[in-house]
Nucleic acid binder design. Structure first.
Lengths: 184, 184
DNA sequence: CGCAATGTGTTCAGTTCTCAACAGTTGGAA
DNA sequence: TTCCAACTGTTGAGAACTGAACACATTGCG
């Protein structure tokens, strides 16, 4: 892809997130973004249909980035190293995910992340045939909610414990299920 | 001017200065700059004929920025506030001017600055008709060298005293001449 | 109410930048 | 020496971006 496209989109998203932190989604205008980013207003429309689309794409982008850091670092199975690298990535990009998870992101980020994680959990569980009893969804949503809850708590409380600790604790909480549910 | 031009030139210059600090002028290649700046190599040639030209333009730019901060803040006459704002500006952009003044800039920056200041001094002196006796150039070069010497000393020794102090001391040193030479 | 100010979304001609290719130069290792 | 790799400087076609204009909607102020 043309470097200009990458750069422009990155610039627009960064500017958008800055403004999101400053004044909230409602009060942001396309003109604001263009002015702050020092680009032509029309250029914004070349990439996004409106600011709602921009929010969507933004969320999509940062959900993917988060997941990539999970997939890159380890097998998708519920290994400690996979969780650890997720939390490391969150720590590194704290301000962004704090923003997207809490007030502004308006919950869209959370629900998008929830869906994807739920699907992954479903797949992981589904691998082991004798897990059929669990496939009614209860287990999936229990585990997904638990995981996201921990994640939100950690971010919204400004990382009250370090990456090592949160990983260990999470693994401890998941242990009964990793043993039973995951095929090795 | 098209915003793209401003942005691109700024980017190229910044990247160039970074590389200058890292590896020195000789070892910099146009490809280096393009790669680091994440732009097409051809784009560099759209703005500068080669890296020597880039160095020239860079020096020219930062000499002008320095002088603007002098002209903006006060009358050109040798007032304390003019000197003060020059040193304030230098302090704010310390790393750049340290780089340009010392090793790499290869003396070009110094001599460019010298010429301009010498010219200004000549003009200031020339205003008072009875200064003709001084117009042989000795005074001009004495004062210019003195001023630039102080400036270089201050930068190269990483600002061993604060802006206030250096300004006061410089004014003290210049006092005999401001009294005699400058018309009011 | 009128109306001025601000934002939206679109269009178009013109400019800048990208990408890929080119031939030519240089420096260093085999 | 020869060869290879890296850098230079240039070109052309096409894509991205700019600036300026446009009609239209919304807001809020006198």
């Amino acid at each position: 892809m043309d470097r200009r496209i990458q750069k422009t989109r990155q610039l627009i998203m960064n500017t958008f997130l800055d403004l999101l932190a400053e004044k909230g989604f409602e009060r942001i205008t396309i003109s604001d973004i263009a002015e702050r980013a020092n680009i032509n207003r029309g250029t914004v429309y070349l990439h996004y249909v409106d600011k709602f689309d921009l929010l969507d794409k933004c969320i999509e982008t940062y959900v993917e980035l988060l997941l990539n850091h999970c997939a890159n670092s380890a097998d998708t199975n519920l290994s400690a190293s996979a969780f650890q690298s997720v939390f490391e990535y969150l720590e590194k990009n704290f301000t962004i995910y704090k923003l997207l998870l809490s007030n502004e992101g308006v919950g869209f980020f959370r629900s998008r992340l929830y869906d994807i994680i739920a699907q992954t959990v479903t797949e992981v569980i589904g691998i082991k045939p004798e897990n059929n009893a669990f496939s009614n969804g209860v287990t999936t949503h229990f585990l997904t909610s638990g995981f996201i809850g921990v994640l939100e708590w950690w971010i919204n409380n400004s990382m009250p414990c370090n990456v090592q600790e949160i990983t260990v604790q999470l693994m401890f909480l998941l242990e009964p299920y990793t043993k039973r549910l995951v095929s090795l």
